[in-house]
Amino acid sequence: MLTIKNLQAKIGDKQILNGINLEVKPGEVHAIMGPNGSGKSTLASVLAGREEYEVTGGEVEFLGKDLLELEPEERAREGMFLAFQYPVEIPGVSTINFMKTAVNQIREHRGQPALDAVSFLGLMREKMKLVEIDQSLLNRSLNEGFSGGEKKRNEIFQMAMLEPKLAILDETDSGLDIDALKIVSNGVNKLRNKSNAVIVVTHYQRLLDYIVPDFVHVLYKGKIVKSGTKELALELEAKGYDWIKDEVSVA
């Protein structure tokens, strides 16, 4: 589904990604871990097509297409979703209105007719249950005055609405208490199936108890320096990142 080969990217003069290789197949969950500033959010942004980041080398194939050739909105319409680490506020625009615009533009791209108000509301109700989100939150201006947890839950609600092929969750667990973490993870798990995939970016292994990864990768200084199974996450939890850093500097 997603094949990243030797991906390099910089912002301004600062080289951040230094040759990333990653292969994600349908049905899989990959976790990307790593110390602060190692380039996890940058990788997510580059995949989503954020303009500030300049790709300086490498290739990315997504569902048979050259991802780097696609505009950000085309990537989204092809089925890529990014749950932001820091979701932005859009005053005066409710989540409902926002999602209605998004859903219908994606449908148009797929040659489907726009959803009428009734069908849209039906879809919304169904997805609201999935992430246990209240309609009053969805009526408010997008992310404005939301608590950290509400923002993250709202991101997963949007994921549920858009049913992406590949979802990248950037630190969706940060700022969530344990109950919210369970609800959000539960929602993500319910959305999983054989034909979609999830990349979870996280600091903590705690989330991986709920969204169980098939593979765990450690990103350090813009490179994947170690890959393994979920046991690697436990090891990182126990030992911290220093042994990885040591291993890298030795090599």
């Binding site: 989503a48 097509g49 954020r50 303009e51 500030e52 505009e71 950000p72 909105e73 990537r75 989204a76 319409r77 979703f81 990014l82 932001f84 979701p87 932005v88 506020e89 859009i90 005053p91 005066g92 625009v93 209105n97 926002f98 999602m99 615009t101 998004a102 533009q105 994606i106 791209h109 201006s141 949007q158 858009l162």
Partner: peptide, 26 residues
């Protein structure tokens, strides 16, 4: 904000509609 527009783009909304959405909200 660039980040407001990017947020919309990432949800599959094209740039013109993104601006319209943000301005109408404002």
């Amino acid at each position: 904000g660039e980040d407001q527009i990017f947020y919309c783009l990432q949800r599959g909304i094209d740039e013109e509609s993104a601006v319209a959405l943000i301005v109408n909200g404002y």
